[in-house]
Design a protein around this nucleic acid. Sequence first.
DNA 1: AATTCCAGAGAACAGTTGTTAACTGGATGA
DNA 2: TCATCCAGTTAACAACTGTTCTCTGGAATT
Lengths: 208, 208
Amino acid sequence: MSHTLGIRQAQKQKTRQAFLDAALALLEEQSLSSLGLREVTRAVGVAPTAFYRHFRSTADLGVALVDEALGSLHPMVRTTVSTAGDSEERITRAIELIAHHVDSHPAHVRFIARERHGGVQPVREAIQSQLARFAEEVKAELAKDPQAEGWSDDDLLMLAHLYVDQMLITASLFLETLEGSEDERERVSQIATRQMRLISIGRRHWLD
Amino acid sequence: MSHTLGIRQAQKQKTRQAFLDAALALLEEQSLSSLGLREVTRAVGVAPTAFYRHFRSTADLGVALVDEALGSLHPMVRTTVSTAGDSEERITRAIELIAHHVDSHPAHVRFIARERHGGVQPVREAIQSQLARFAEEVKAELAKDPQAEGWSDDDLLMLAHLYVDQMLITASLFLETLEGSEDERERVSQIATRQMRLISIGRRHWLD
DNA sequence: AATTCCAGAGAACAGTTGTTAACTGGATGA
DNA sequence: TCATCCAGTTAACAACTGTTCTCTGGAATT
């Protein structure tokens, strides 16, 4: 299926990726709505006008960054929720996965947390839509669990949203401890674990 | 205690408030890190240099906005948590209070949601610190409840954080439905209510 | 080999930005 | 009444912004 790209297309994709990388780096210390087009081209090392060969605007670039940051995350979320083991094991594993993902892609996590409620509408919408997809996928996995018997569709979706939001809160907490001590990270891990545990308990007794 | 201000001081405070109001309005469609000083002065109708009589920078103005948006909210949060009635009544009342607050101060809510993870460090820190205060206050109220018997301090604080985060998530959801239909708002209300209910159930069975 | 294509360069545009310095005129306190 | 104070003004600064049009040179196609 995969077609070998010509030299030209390959170079273009390489430059495009350079734009995404440079923008992501610049966005660690500001919001997308203040990111200038020239600022990005300067960081990449190309002429300002080259920008237009790849993106219509910085908002457009932002939407591409949303895809890069969240697009490849769906399989991970699905398998995390559906992983075998008892409730406690799954919680531990989920928290570990989040911590690891924040460690390896801190700029992506920061970007999503920042722009989820940020000042650029198309980017906000792109994030919301991806998060809604996450919730739907989590819901689908939850529905397979025997624990979900007797649950209405609405309730499954509300629980899925709770999990997705909790995932983001936890990721953002880990992000804040990135330059902190091991103790801090351990403390965040404990809080997040207990919050997930409390939600799981609520889930178990929901139908009482 | 309150000292009557002279004409001069009164005028200054009036102008300062005009700055805060104008900035808040401009921030509905962008982030603080892209808010220009001249942009604000233009909206207020004063010369650019007048800005410096009130704020060192736009970041400084942002911190003042955090105080305005969250400073007066502490009593409300305290009483909401400590209100009498059974669990279900308290949840309904809390959600109603949030919905009402979003209705009457939408720009404040948007500002907090946006800048909580925004690109301006001092503002982020100001928000974090206020939210930490909220959590401490909620924890103090929770500790008074007979249900809290046998709970460790750590667990009370983790539950308090869960409530505070849930409050923000709900507020932000209501914000998105502000220009939507009554049905949408009702749906958000239902989801938020059930999520709070699930957390309450988890809380009740925590010590099992 | 000749032609078309197109990512990126270069120059120029009118507007914008934050910050400085020196000012004005009405409120304030002696 | 007179000197002091200070919120807001005016003018000017170099630096920056997004966008347009024109051009170039190597890859792609015929």
